[in-house]
Amino acid sequence: MYSLDVVQISRVQADQRAGRAGRTRPGKCYRLYPISIYQKEFLEATIPEIQRSSLAGSVLYLKSLDLPDINILKFDFLDPPSRESLEDALRQLYLIDAIDENGQITDVGRIMAELPLEPSLSRTLIEANKLGCLSQALTVAAVLSAEITFRSTRSKDMEGKRKRQELPDGSGWGDHIQLLQIFESWDRTGYDPRWCSDHELQVRGMKFSKDVRNQLSQIIQKIAKGSTDVQAKKEQKSDPDYRKLRRALCVGYGNQLAERMLHHNGYHTVGYRAQLVQVHPFSVLEGDEYGKLPVYIVYHELINTTRPFMRNVCAVDQSWIKPILKKLERLDMNKLSGGSSGSKDPEPLEDKQVSSPKKAMDVKQSDVDSKIQAARERYLARKGKK
């Protein structure tokens, strides 16, 4: 399971930052921490990204290459990630239907590999296209990819807080719905930058999300079943509670589910290695009349600050997660990686396979000769056409 953690920089990063601060001439660098921390607590070099980030996209790409007899857990990476990271990536791809229980890439997985998004958002778009809410899902995916943020304001700036409160509240269903409503409100103004400024939104981030959405719309046109326009009236009228969009998010974030505790609003993640987490304080997710939050939610990411928080959450129905829970029950990690079930190492060859090496060499040489002959014939055929 991946989360955004606040960690110390390495000594290499510290030296690089000192260089950035004094490029024009020699000088002194004053660091805001003791030299003992620099020498004893900082790592010598930064950990390679492949060893500290999600590998779901990389594993999906490897699966899409259709390489024969590839075992993901034994793949020869330049900077080998941990086995736990690879298993987590395989588990995520399996739960969102990118690979089957034997580790083979599915038709859904091949489409996901073509989209320039993280697998969870790619799967959300495919499911939304099936359910008829592609336009809304495109907006959510674009805004999450662009990571729009509010402009920084002072804690005592009551006017700034009031402007933010005027923004849509996600209808109580969660942050994904709020992001959708914010973008749709901006679209109705003709993408006026002043609207963003008036509501304390960073104009640059909003413009970037608009560009990302346009790009995604062009890429997904070949599989789109409906309109990709921002204001898709048919989607809004037929789904006032955003059930279709929330269901698509549930499918896309099948590996990022959380269940509320029985007696309070704390949550624990569903699946492998459950973790106690809480909804981020800035979330617009609302509870019922008794103040209890939804029983099941999906989250976009985990952030570890004072405690683990789920950021960008959305309420989902219990009936939607039943297929995901069934998948967890029959999960076989060795099969997902590309190996055979029940054995981690390949079985030794039988005696009859190694008893006649001369025959095997003859067969191999025959294959080489046939390939050379086929290549020669293709060359002569092309030459004849000229």
Rank of each mutant, 00 (worst) to 15 (best):
D5S: 11
S10F: 04
R11L: 00
R11E: 04
V12T: 12
V12S: 14
V12G: 09
D15C: 09
G22W: 11
G22A: 13
I37S: 13
I50P: 00
R52K: 09
L55W: 01
G57I: 02
V59R: 00
I70V: 14
N71R: 10
D76T: 02
S82R: 03
E87S: 04
L90T: 00
L90M: 01
L93E: 05
L95Q: 08
I99C: 04
I99Q: 02
D100L: 10
L115V: 13
L117K: 05
G132R: 10
L134W: 02
A141Q: 05
L144A: 06
S145H: 08
T153V: 08
R164C: 05
L167C: 05
I182E: 01
I182W: 02
R194P: 06
C196E: 10
Q202E: 15
M206Q: 08
M206P: 04
K207H: 05
I220R: 01
K222S: 13
K225H: 12
G226T: 13
T228N: 15
T228L: 10
Q231Y: 09
A232C: 13
A232F: 12
S238F: 01
D239I: 01
D241T: 03
Y253F: 15
Y253M: 13
N255G: 15
N255V: 03
A258W: 03
L262H: 13
A274Q: 12
L285W: 06
Y299N: 06
N304C: 12
Q318C: 07
P323Q: 07
K327P: 01
M333N: 02
N334C: 07
K335T: 10
L336P: 01
S337D: 05
Q353Y: 11
S355K: 14
S355C: 12
M361W: 13
M361Q: 15
S366F: 11
E377D: 11
R378V: 11
L380N: 15
